[in-house]
Write a protein that binds this DNA or RNA. Structure first.
Length: 621
RNA sequence: GCCGAGGUAGCUCAGUGGUAGAGCAGCCGAUUCGUAAUCGGCAGGUCGCGGGUUCAAGUCCCGCCCUCGGCUCCA
């Protein structure tokens, strides 16, 4: 039997040996760092036997597969701890997540923070015991019997869902046994630091008609340093939360008296929105779009014709009666753009026609899913509909792809994840149209060399779509852009509200100069410099910059602190020295001393900081 | 919608049945100061909304509204 390693070296060994012993026979030290192995592309336990020629790759925590095994074993350790502390809790499922794990238990009451402490202490004890983790295979019948005897009814239900001939694997550590596909760490002692984070309710199998289970989230890492880094990242995410920053910087508010999911844009937030919208309009006109406007309500019949009443009713506000007709608050802009298109006869020579609108729509979302600016009930889509011939679809989609990457890149987003979503269960239109539209989208993606994944069945009822997720400064992915075929429907920023929420978090409120609501604050040291400061501000404003004076009788330290907290990109400090020499002492955001310069020099500095849009500031401040 | 935690001054929060508090912000006064908080004083409340228990409710009970975490990652 021939075993090949990643580095290409290979060796003959007798069949039937375990992966672990083969690796050590090949001269690799089996340190606790090696968690599992990949054999011919499949992740397996180190204890699994090798039966045929194989390529073997040892897995450590530094690989995604290695981490998955590590976290999966961690959640088993937590489950064992829960069973030891609360024997009446029933096991359900417990997968690894990207940076941790969870396990759902059926239990008579929610777990309290005190419970978590006890469970965590027990889990640490289980790690200390370094129990060997053993795999066993049972027939379906035996597996059902085994878990039935232990009162694990959810496990029995899971096994009943598995196919009949299949051998069913269970993993044991000490007295604890769980139904599990594996693979797992060799012992519970392979886990380093272990921490439980929070609890939550979760439906059995994710279905709200099913019983509510008690979920516990946790995470684990080989070292305390890595755990600390992870916790610091969670803190950073909290610090940048757009709901917190949006309030601190007085950008937006969502008020109970107005209604959930309905956003007020305060002057500073509105300034940024205006800049975004102006940029959007200019770019669309330059790229061959015609801009349109449409009303916020329309006869319900329009929404019946469009299919929204049949396919989208759950997300619509209730209709209202006006005179003798029913009217509907709009959940989408498409029917209006189609009506503009249909307002007179079009020749194929007129195509493509591209209608764009910053169209505000209203959708009913259940209160439990609302989330700051990222999930709201009233929002403005940067919407457009492209009417084109079948032979133009591919090139139009290609252009939209390029345009999307340009627009998003202008706001500092340069990493993307692209998904192609295909025909869902509930849909309108023939199979042929779906196939045609889907292949046009795919051809455009391939033509632009864009890497993408398929999201089967996730298309909209009227057509397939390309979704583009942007990655922010902390590496998180957010869904904004969508491009949908049949009539090509696209939104690049998605909704201005969501996009703004993401922008706030991406920059942590420290917007690049072209978007900053206040670009420079000119501050006096004493009352002596007031006329000079006022004159400088007048000059800055005349040059088109958003500048403010801070003439208060306060110490310069306080003025700087407040400008820092407001994330103003530039502070121009003026004392008697500057008045004498006709200069400004310039301080960048976060304390950079940029020296002294004249007003003309300061204007050059501001201009130079405007381009390339969105990419000139460090995102780590 | 469901499970859990919350809602007290503009903001952040303390307040375990007995006279509603602090810090910051605000206002008034003093201070004229060189790169992240000058000092002093004053004012500020339907304790989310509605009902109930009690001599007495921010606090206990019931209903509702809203916010936050989760319900998407699946042996």
């Amino acid at each position: 039997m021939k075993i090949t390693l990643k580095n290409g070296s290979s060796r003959d060994v007798p069949a039937g040996q375990s992966v672990g012993s083969v690796l050590s026979a090949l001269g690799l030290t089996i340190s606790p760092d090696i968690l599992a192995a990949k054999v011919n592309g499949q992740t397996v336990d180190l204890s699994s036997a090798l039966a045929e020629d194989a390529e073997v790759i040892p897995l450590q925590f530094d690989s995604a597969e290695g981490r998955e095994v590590y976290r999966h074993s961690s959640t088993h350790i937590m489950a064992q701890a829960v069973k030891e502390v609360f024997p009446t809790a029933q096991l359900t499922i417990g997968p690894a997540l990207e940076d941790g794990f969870f396990y759902d238990f059926a239990f008579e009451r929610p777990f309290t923070p005190e419970d978590l402490e006890k469970i965590e202490a027990r889990a640490k004890d289980i790690i200390k015991r370094a129990l060997p983790v053993k795999r066993a295979e049972l027939s379906k019948q035996d597996a059902i019997k085994f878990f039935q005897e232990r009162g694990e009814t959810y496990k029995v239900e899971l096994i009943q869902g598995l196919s009949d001939g299949q051998a069913i694997s269970v993993y044991s550590q000490g007295e604890f046994t769980d139904l599990c596909r594996g693979p797992h760490l060799p012992t519970t002692g392979h886990v380093g630091v272990f921490k439980l984070l929070n609890t939550a309710g979760a439906y059995w199998r994710g279905d709200e008609r099913n019983p509510m289970l008690q979920r516990i989230y946790g995470t684990s890492f080989p070292t305390q340093t890595e755990l600390d880094a992870h916790l610091a990242r969670l803190e950073e995410i909290k610090r940048r939360d757009h709901r917190k920053v949006g309030k601190e910087l007085d950008l937006i508010s969502i008020q109970d008296d107005i209604g959930p999911g309905l956003v007020l844009w305060h002057p500073k937030g509105a300034t940024i929105r205006l800049l975004i919208e102006n940029f959007w309009r200019d770019q669309h006109i330059q790229n061959g779009y015609e801009l349109v406007y449409s009303p916020h309500v329309a006869r319900l019949d329009l929404w019946k014709t469009s299919g929204h009443v049949d396919y989208y009713r759950d997300n619509m506000f209730a209709s209202m009666k006006v005179e003798n007709s029913e009217y509907q608050l709009k959940p989408m802009n498409c029917p209006f753009h189609i009506m503009i298109y249909k307002s007179h006869l079009r020749s194929y020579r007129d195509l493509p026609i591209r209608y764009g609108e910053l169209g505000t729509v209203y959708r009913y979302e259940r209160t439990g899913v609302l989330h700051g600016l990222l999930r709201v009930r009233g929002f403005t889509q940067d919407d457009a509909h492209l009417f084109c011939r079948v032979d133009q679809i591919e090139s139009e989609v290609s252009q939209v792809l390029d345009f999307t990457f340009f627009i998003l890149g202008s706001f500092g987003f340069t990493e993307f994840e692209v998904y192609l979503s295909t025909k869902p269960e509930k849909s309108v239109g023939s199979e042929e149209r779906w196939a045609q539209a889907t292949s046009a989208l795919e051809a455009a993606l391939k033509g632009r060399g864009v890497a993408y994944q398929i999201d089967p069945g996730e298309g909209v009822f009227y057509g397939p779509k390309i979704d583009i997720k942007i990655k922010d400064a902390l590496g998180r992915s957010w869904q904004c852009s969508t491009i949908q075929a049949i009539m090509i429907h696209r939104a690049l920023m998605g909704s201005i509200e969501r996009f703004f929420g993401i922008l706030i978090e991406h920059f942590g409120g420290a917007f690049p100069t072209w978007l900053a609501p206040v670009q420079a604050t000119v501050m006096s040291i004493t009352d002596n410099q007031r006329p000079y400061v006022a004159d400088v501000v007048t000059q800055l404003k005349a040059a088109g910059f958003r500048a403010e004076a801070d003439l208060r009788n306060e110490k310069i330290g306080l003025k700087i602190r407040e400008a820092e907290k407001a994330k103003v990109p530039f502070m121009f400090v003026v004392g008697d020295r500057e008045v004498q020499s006709g200069t400004l002492a310039i301080r960048g955001r976060s304390g950079a001393n940029l020296g002294s310069m004249t007003v003309a020099g300061a204007l050059d500095l501001l201009r130079a900081d405007l381009k390339p849009a969105g990419q000139q500031h460090s995102l780590t401040q």
